[in-house]
Amino acid sequence: MDIKQLHYFVTVADQLSYSKAAQKLHISQPSLSNAIKNLEQEVGSPLLERNTRKMELTDAGNIFYQKAASLLSQMNMLKKEMEEVKLTGSGELIIGIIESVKHWIPKVIREYQGLYPSMNIKLIEVLSGNAVKESLRKYQTHLLITNQYIDEEDIESVPLYNEKLVLVLHRDHPLARKEFIHIKELEREPFIISTEGFQTREDILTAFALEQVTPNIKFEIERFETALTLVRENLGITIIPENYVSESTDVSVVRKTIDSPALERTIYLTFMKNRYLAPAVESFMEEVRGKFG
């Protein structure tokens, strides 16, 4: 039994098709089928149930799949960590971000590149809580800046700063002329909100629940820019992080602060606790901490 056999089996189990798996692995279907048969003989138990209609994992196959997938993941992590041991001033830094950090992260990157000019930096939007955990555990990112507090044994969440969530509406909206706006005044307004799985949505719904009112949700979006586009057309109102609109020069929209303890969130620097991070990666994390420390 070797790593290649495990890789073949996990791919077949993921695809539940020899032809699709063979295509993905760039080998012939008969070669793949023989490799799986040899693995089953070595294990001493059938791993795949085959019939004319579909393929399924046996009970033994399910257990073997979980262990094999975990082992392959660990091998992949080990390979990447070994590649990064020698990384000091060149290579790739992958950062997961949320939309509202756009007002400060370019400044940190500029200072960082003065220290590591040959580093290639990749910025990836990672928005939901599950996506944050997956991107870290699968080594898709070195670190994340997120509003999701991740309470897991293998993940560290370091608070950086707090930011308010503010009401944004079209300048022609009747509420735009008011100096103070209460959440209860928003109950019947067409509301634009993040889809399920986003912390911002939970914060907004909590703010409404505290006032015992329910928002009139008309649009569900994933990106704040989409929400602003809808507001610009006066199709609804929204609540988004203040830093996302802090430098906006768009005169078609106005923002208002609403007094609610729920409409404030914490931004975290998040990373794997036990993952080896190269000096160049650690240096970026120190730059971020130093900005808000």
Rank of each mutant, 00 (worst) to 15 (best):
G44P: 12
L78T: 11
L32Q: 08
R50L: 08
T52Y: 15
S70Y: 03
D59L: 11
S28R: 12
E42M: 04
L78R: 05
S90C: 00
G91P: 01
E40P: 10
Y18S: 06
V85P: 00
S90N: 14
E92L: 11
E40S: 02
N38Q: 15
Q23P: 00
I27L: 12
S28N: 11
Q74E: 14
A22W: 02
N62C: 10
I27M: 12
S31M: 12
D59A: 10
L48K: 03
K24M: 05
H26P: 01
A21F: 11
S73M: 07
A68Y: 00
P30T: 02
L57C: 02
K54T: 06
Q66P: 00
N76F: 02
A22G: 09
L32M: 12
K37P: 00
L48T: 03
S17R: 02
Y18R: 10
D59N: 10
Q74H: 01
L93N: 05
Q41I: 09
Q23I: 04
L78N: 05
Q66N: 11
A60C: 09
K54M: 05
S70H: 11
L93D: 11
L32Y: 06
S17K: 08
E83N: 10
S45N: 09
Q23W: 03
A21H: 07
E83F: 05
G44Q: 12
K37S: 13
D59H: 07
F64M: 15
A69K: 08
S70R: 13
A60P: 04
S19E: 13
A22N: 06
M82F: 11
E92Y: 05
I36Y: 03
E83W: 01
M82Y: 07
L57F: 03
S19N: 14
L39Q: 01
M82H: 09
L87V: 01
A35D: 09
A22Y: 09
S45F: 04
L87P: 03
L87Y: 03
L47V: 07
Y65F: 15
K80C: 00
S31W: 10
A35E: 00
A68I: 02
M77E: 06
M55G: 03
N51M: 06
P46T: 08
K80I: 15
G61K: 01
A35L: 14
Q66W: 02
T58L: 07
S73C: 00
N62P: 01
K20M: 08
D59S: 12
L87G: 01
Q23S: 15
M82L: 15
K80Q: 14
S19I: 12
L39I: 12
S45E: 05
E49W: 07
G44T: 06
E56S: 15
L78F: 12
L32G: 04
P46R: 11
M75R: 00
V85F: 01
P30M: 08
L78M: 05
E92K: 11
G61F: 05
E83G: 10
K20Q: 12
M82P: 02
E49H: 15
A22V: 10
Q66A: 14
G89Y: 05
S45V: 04
Q29M: 13
A68Q: 06
I36N: 03
G91Q: 06
M77R: 10
K80M: 13
E49R: 10
Y65K: 04
L48I: 15
A60Q: 03
L32D: 03
A21D: 03
G61M: 06
S33D: 04
S17I: 11
L57I: 04
S31G: 05
